[in-house]
C-alpha cells in the first residue's frame, strides 16, 4: 500500500459518500444519471466476486463491502425511494453501447480465460467508461450542481491517483497490470475536460455550466 493508492481509495470512498449524502439530504437525485450508478453497481459486483474466494486483508474486504453496499443503496435511492425526482428524460445514454463492447473485449483481451478473470476484466473495462451517461447528462442539461461536481471530481481523481500508484509499484515491485493501466488511462482521459471545468469554474465559486 502506497500513498497514491490509499488516497485513491479514500477519494473513491469520498465520491460515493458525497453522492449518497447529496441524494439523502436534498431528498432528490436530480441531475444524477441512474444509468451510471447501475453500471457502477455492476462494476463492483463483477469485480469483487473474489470476496468469497480469497481473503487479502481486513482493509481490502471492508472497502469492497462498503463500495458494493453504497452502490446498491444509491441505485435504490434513485430508482425507488426518490424515483419521482429522477430526471429520466435527460438520462438517455444508450448503455448497451458501453456494456456490449466492454463485455466482448473482456472475452478477447484478458489475463486468463476463466469466468472470474473475465468478469474482473469486464469490470475494469466497464468502469473506465461507466461515467459517460453522467457526463452525457451534464452536457445535455448544460450544468451540474456544485455538489455533483465535487462528486465527479473525487471520482475522477481516484483513478488518476491509481495511475501514480501503478508507476510507483512498477518502480518498487516490478508489478504492472497492463489491462488495469490502459483502462485507467482511458478512464482518466474521459475526465480531463471535466477537470478543466472544475478547476476553472467550480473551485472559483461558480456553478458548473456549459456554454449554450
Amino acid at each position: 500500500m502506497n500513498i497514491f493508492r490509499f488516497l485513491g481509495d479514500i477519494s473513491h470512498l469520498l465520491a460515493i459518500i458525497i453522492l449518497l449524502m447529496k441524494i439523502w439530504k436534498t431528498r432528490s437525485c436530480a441531475g444524477i444519471s441512474g444509468k451510471s450508478q447501475i453500471l457502477f453497481a455492476v462494476v463492483f459486483t463483477t469485480r469483487y466476486l473474489d470476496l468469497v474466494t480469497n481473503f487479502i486483508s481486513f482493509y481490502n474486504t471492508s472497502m469492497k463491502v462498503v463500495y458494493i453496499a453504497c452502490s446498491y443503496a444509491t441505485v435504490w435511492l434513485i430508482y425507488s425511494k426518490f424515483k419521482a425526482t429522477y430526471d429520466g428524460n435527460h438520462d438517455t445514454f444508450r448503455v448497451e453501447f458501453l456494456v456490449v463492447p466492454t463485455a466482448v473485449l473482456a472475452f478477447l483481451v484478458n489475463h486468463d480465460f476463466t469466468p472470474l478473470e473475465i468478469l474482473w476484466t469486464f469490470s475494469i473495462y466497464l468502469e473506465s467508461v461507466a461515467i459517460l451517461p453522467q457526463l452525457f447528462m451534464v452536457s445535455k442539461t448544460g450544468e451540474a450542481e456544485t455538489i455533483t461536481s465535487h462528486y465527479l471530481f473525487a471520482l475522477g481523481i481516484y483513478r488518476t491517483l491509481y495511475l501514480f500508484n501503478w508507476i510507483w509499484r512498477y518502480q518498487q515491485e516490478g508489478f504492472f497490470d497492463l489491462i488495469a493501466i490502459v483502462a485507467g488511462l482511458v478512464q482518466t482521459i474521459l475526465y480531463c475536460d471535466f477537470f478543466y471545468l472544475y478547476i476553472t469554474k467550480v473551485l472559483k465559486g461558480k456553478k458548473l455550466s456549459l456554454p449554450a
Partner: peptide, 10 residues
C-alpha cells in the same frame, strides 16, 4: 516481465 494481477487492489 509480464505479471498477472494479484488482485490486491480495489
Amino acid at each position: 516481465h509480464y505479471l498477472v494481477t494479484t488482485k490486491d487492489e480495489l
